[in-house]
């Protein structure tokens, strides 16, 4: 019926045991930290999508420059999504990846700057 392993299968240890693997710990982090972190990435991706949609809506107000800026916002969104996807899916804790976090923060900052340009253009 399902492809999940039955109870007869030996317990797997998908996550490193933080207590040093003495065998006494639970097979996975009872605090579900990897899962919570993945869900946090997905929530953030959703927020980014909404803000990108608002940016595109702001940009699409007539002229060619607005069209180009809307395209830039969409391109940035498309470039950021794989990062969110990589950190938001999979099993086990993703290793610390020092580049993803600054990259998505930079993306949000660029989006803010683009918003300022778009608002000032509309004056």
């Amino acid at each position: 019926m399902t492809d999940r392993p039955g109870p007869a299968e030996p317990a797997r240890r998908p996550y490193p045991d933080p207590d040093g693997g003495s065998g006494g710990g639970s097979p996975r982090d009872p605090g579900l930290q990897p899962e919570r972190t993945r869900l946090a990435w997905r929530r953030t991706a959703l927020t980014l999508t909404v803000v990108t949609a608002l940016t595109v809506r702001q940009a699409l107000s007539g002229d060619l420059g607005g069209l180009l800026l809307a395209g830039a916002a969409l391109a940035g969104w498309g470039a950021a999504l794989p990062i969110y996807w990589r950190r938001g899916t999979g099993t086990g804790p993703a290793p610390l990846d020092g580049r993803s976090l600054p990259a998505v923060a930079l993306g949000a900052t660029v989006l803010a700057a683009l918003g300022v340009v778009l608002v000032l253009r509309g004056l």
């Binding site: 946090a40 927020t47 803000v51 608002l54 976090l101 949000a108 989006l111 509309g122």
Partner: peptide, 23 residues
């Protein structure tokens, strides 16, 4: 990492709020 993401969502929410005010 999750704290960072929560702050990033806060920042994105402010950006979205600014765009919503303008529109």
């Amino acid at each position: 990492e999750r704290t960072f993401l929560a702050w990033l969502r806060t920042g994105l929410a402010l950006v979205g709020g600014g765009l919503a005010v303008a529109q």
